[in-house]
Computed example of a mutant assay.
Amino acid sequence: MKAIQFDRFGQPADILKSVEVAMPEPAAGHVRVRVLASPINPSDLMFVQNRYGIRPQLPSPAGFEGMGVIDAVGEGANLPIGIRVSFTGLGSWGEYVVVHHKAVIPVPDAMTDAIAAQLFVNPFTAYAMVQDSGVPEGGWLMLTAAGSAFGKLVIQLCVKRGIKTIGTVRRNDLNDELTKLGLTEIINTETDDMAARVREITGGTGVQCVLDAVGGQTATDAVACLGKGGTMLVYGLLSAENPSLNVGLMIFRELTIKGFWLSDWMRRVDTQVRQEVSKNVIDWLTTGEAQLPIEGRYTLDQIAEAVDHADRPGRWGKILITP
């Protein structure tokens, strides 16, 4: 079978290769999935560059989530062969992958393959972070990198919950589309004074929470946008630069800054919460209410072109690997 592997760290387009590997067999408690589609997420690219929370063991497979059809099961994995599932597990960029049965979610017939492939990482993270933000209906939530696939989901979820949103962008080419999704206000980090604009938008109170994926100067400026008792949840570092923190602001506004990683959140909450989030996310995506656009599809042999496209500025939709 074909699978994507890398044997050194570096730029994904330079080191990812489609290779022939042995067909994996499911051990006890595991299932084998014939992969139909898998997205390219920022976490996938960070993993390849050894910048993620999990260190690759070289040579390493790549890709963390996808969807497909179960075609073999190990002992104790009580899932029927032939059902469509969304899954998480390293090695999703391949024709087949073996994952633990607890990392598999059966998907309804009404859900398309393209949406099922993106079911876990971005939707679950968006749902969990908006929930953890504590922003009530009518309150203000700010998100950096608003044009990302994750940002678009947060915007749509906040519309559903009656939360007002401020999103930062570096270019204005996606502004109309973001506004149509429901983004309340847009700040261009290249031309606007972020803190001044937020004070103007919120009547001087600031926002209750910032979801930051950028770091660097953007995150530094975003801290100053928090109101009294506000919280910044940091879930990425797209700039590859650490922010500078204003300790005075943190003290006198009683601010909280903490990291968010979905893997830890899933371990931290109880089974009832996980099941509730799973049901709500699946229901939300199945109705077609949320948009998860696709901009390109590539085969395993086109992996270099695929990751280049995924890293392209101004991209509107997700890039899928379709073995």
Results as ranks from 00 to 15, higher is better:
Gln217Ala: 12
Gln217Asn: 10
Gln217Pro: 01
Gln217Thr: 06
Gln217Trp: 01
Gln217Leu: 06
Thr218His: 02
Thr218Ala: 11
Thr218Cys: 10
Thr218Trp: 00
Thr218Val: 13
Ala219Gly: 01
Ala219Asp: 03
Ala219Trp: 02
Ala219Pro: 04
Ala219Phe: 00
Thr220Asp: 03
Thr220Met: 05
Thr220Gln: 03
Asp221Trp: 02
Ala222Ile: 07
Ala222Met: 03
Ala222Gln: 05
Val223Ile: 10
Val223Leu: 10
Ala224Val: 04
Ala224Ser: 07
Cys225Pro: 06
Cys225Asp: 07
Leu226Cys: 12
Leu226Asp: 06
Leu226Gln: 04
Gly227Leu: 04
Gly229Met: 05
Gly229Ser: 03
Gly230Thr: 02
Thr231Tyr: 00
Thr231Phe: 01
Thr231Leu: 01
Thr231Gly: 04
Met232Gln: 06
Leu233Asp: 03
Leu233His: 02
Leu233Ser: 05
Leu233Glu: 02
Leu233Arg: 01
Tyr235Thr: 13
Tyr235Asp: 14
Gly236Trp: 02
Gly236Val: 03
Gly236Ile: 02
Gly236Asp: 09
Leu237Trp: 05
Ser239Ala: 07
Ala240Tyr: 15
Ala240Val: 15
Ala240Leu: 15
Ala240Arg: 15
Glu241Asn: 09
Glu241Arg: 02
Glu241Ile: 00
Glu241Val: 06
Glu241Met: 09
Glu241Leu: 06
Asn242Leu: 11
Asn242Asp: 13
Asn242His: 05
Pro243Ala: 03
Pro243Asp: 04
Ser244Leu: 11
Leu245Phe: 14
Leu245Ser: 11
Asn246Thr: 01
Val247Arg: 01
Val247Tyr: 05
Val247Gly: 05
Gly248Asn: 13
Gly248Phe: 12
Leu249Arg: 01
Leu249Asp: 04
Leu249Trp: 05
Met250Arg: 02
Met250Lys: 08
Met250Tyr: 07
Ile251Glu: 06
Phe252Pro: 08
Phe252Gly: 13
Arg253Tyr: 00
Arg253Met: 09
Arg253Asp: 08
Arg253Ala: 00
Glu254Asp: 15
Glu254Ser: 12
Glu254Met: 08
Leu255Cys: 03
Leu255Ile: 00
Thr256Gly: 08
Ile257Lys: 08
Ile257Asp: 12
Ile257Val: 14
Lys258Phe: 00
Lys258Trp: 03
Lys258Asp: 08
Gly259Trp: 07
Phe260Ile: 07
Phe260Cys: 05
Trp261Pro: 02
Trp261Val: 09
Trp261Met: 12
Trp261Lys: 10
Trp261Glu: 11
Leu262Ile: 11
Leu262Gln: 13
Leu262Met: 13
Leu262Trp: 09
Ser263Gly: 14
Asp264Leu: 15
Asp264Arg: 14
Trp265Ile: 13
Met266Ile: 14
Met266Tyr: 11
Arg267Gln: 15
Arg268Gln: 12
Arg268Gly: 11
Arg268Tyr: 12
Arg268Val: 09
Val269Ala: 10
Val269Leu: 07
Asp270Val: 10
Asp270Thr: 08
Thr271Val: 14
Gln272Asp: 15
Gln272Val: 15
Gln272Tyr: 12
Arg274Lys: 13
Arg274Trp: 07
Gln275His: 12
Gln275Leu: 13
Glu276Asp: 15
Glu276Thr: 13
Val277Ser: 03
Ser278Met: 15
Lys279Pro: 00
Asn280Gly: 09
Val281Arg: 01
Val281Leu: 01
Asp283Met: 12
Trp284Asp: 09
Trp284His: 10
Trp284Leu: 10
